[in-house]
Amino acid sequence: MADIKLPANKVQELRDICAKFNHEKGELINVLHAAQGIFGYLPAEVQDIVAEELNVSVAHVYGVVTFYSFFTMTPKGKYPISICMGTACYVRGAEKVLDEFKRLLDLKVGETSANGDFSISCLRCVGACGLAPVVTVGEKVYGRVAPEDVKGIIAEYK
């Protein structure tokens, strides 16, 4: 694991959040959500701090982080692209849309582009099945996406 330096102000923010949660072990998942909000991802160093603050083993924290797909240990791109692979989207061709993103960005699912701009991930149903297939880029939602639309979506962010 590569050692990284965490900015002190962000670390303090995280410690404050742990204190706000009373250093309760049971709040681990809430704390991890907050930590991912602060740092964008959950590197080992952040998990060490969380373990220390909540008085649980770092192995336990890591066990929880790797269990839940929402948590990530790799930084996401500036424009994180998520393709919904829920059933409704799947039957309406989400896989082809995903393939097109992978092809055009030359990335695999879970990877981030070298310049840090884009990352691709799959989602399980965002609850917008009426718009299937659905793609989100950051907060923006694209509905009824066809493979031909992919190029245009990427171009918006380049």
Binding site: A44, H60, Y62, T66, F67
Partner: peptide, 24 residues
């Protein structure tokens, strides 16, 4: 964890990939 309270090991990942291992 329960007997020795050392806390080196935990189940990690989930499903077919799950295994018991130290942090990271």
């Amino acid at each position: 964890n329960d007997v020795q309270t050392v806390g080196t090991l935990s189940a990690i990942y989930r499903g077919f990939n799950s295994v018991v291992a130290p942090a990271f």
